[in-house]
Simulated assay, not measured.
Amino acid sequence: MIMQSMFVFLELLDIPTIGSMSKDKKLFLNLINISHLKQIDELIQSNDGKLFLVSKNVIQMMHLLKKKYGVFKWLKPEVDSVGDQILINSNEVKVIYHFSASVTSEYRKNLKKYIDQVICYFLQK
């Protein structure tokens, strides 16, 4: 039996990239595929019991894309800082530091504990 993935790392672009979207916001916005954003939106609003780990920069960009394209209507304005989270049906969106960022080992340990708790919860279902 193949276990469905419980964790999702969001990529707002549907093409491979390198670098940071914050370095060239205009180029990033030109590469946006609205259909891809709608797929992300549908996935988040599904009832699949997934944990979406989203970096602070991505959640901030999602706020901008919400205004520009009318997607992510569930995204509340106050969800914009590391540690913020929102429940959508049985899914959770949690704002984290980007893994390539310089984060402390304490932060990584706490994130691991949180992920372990989520895994235990799903395994008990």
Rank of each mutant, 00 (worst) to 15 (best):
G49H: 10
I44F: 04
V54G: 00
I44M: 02
L37W: 00
F52Y: 10
H36V: 05
N57A: 04
K56Q: 12
I40G: 07
L64N: 05
H36C: 13
L64K: 09
E42L: 12
L65P: 02
S46Y: 08
L37M: 05
N33W: 06
E42R: 08
L53E: 02
M62A: 02
L53C: 06
L43T: 12
M61P: 01
Q39V: 06
K67R: 12
N47M: 11
G70M: 07
L65S: 07
H63N: 02
L31R: 15
D41V: 15
L53P: 01
V71H: 04
Q60G: 01
L64D: 08
L65K: 03
H36P: 02
I34E: 09
L51C: 09
M61D: 01
L51N: 04
D41I: 15
S35A: 14
D41T: 04
Q60P: 02
S35V: 06
S35C: 08
Q39T: 13
Q39P: 02
V58I: 07
K66G: 05
V58D: 05
K56A: 12
I34A: 12
G70R: 14
L53K: 11
D41M: 11
L43W: 03
D41W: 09
F52T: 04
V71S: 00
S35K: 09
Y69H: 13
Q39G: 11
Q39K: 14
N47R: 13
L64E: 06
V54E: 00
G70N: 09
L65Q: 02
I44Y: 05
G70Y: 12
Q39E: 11
N57Y: 00
L53Y: 04
E42M: 12
Y69Q: 07
Q39D: 10
K68T: 12
H36Q: 06
L31S: 11
Y69K: 11
H36N: 15
D48Y: 03
I32W: 15
M61L: 09
I40C: 05
H63P: 03
L51K: 01
Q60Y: 00
D41L: 15
L64C: 09
L53H: 07
H63T: 01
I32S: 14
H63D: 05
I44H: 00
G49M: 08
G70W: 04
Q39S: 08
G49F: 06
Q45S: 10
K67T: 04
S46G: 09
E42D: 12
E42I: 14
S35Y: 12
D48N: 11
L53M: 09
I40Q: 00
V58Q: 03
L65M: 15
V54D: 01
L64R: 07
L37P: 01
I32Q: 14
I40D: 04
I40Y: 06
I40L: 14
N33L: 09
L65I: 05
M61A: 13
L31Y: 06
I32F: 10
S55R: 01
I44A: 03
M62C: 03
L31Q: 14
S35E: 14
F52V: 01
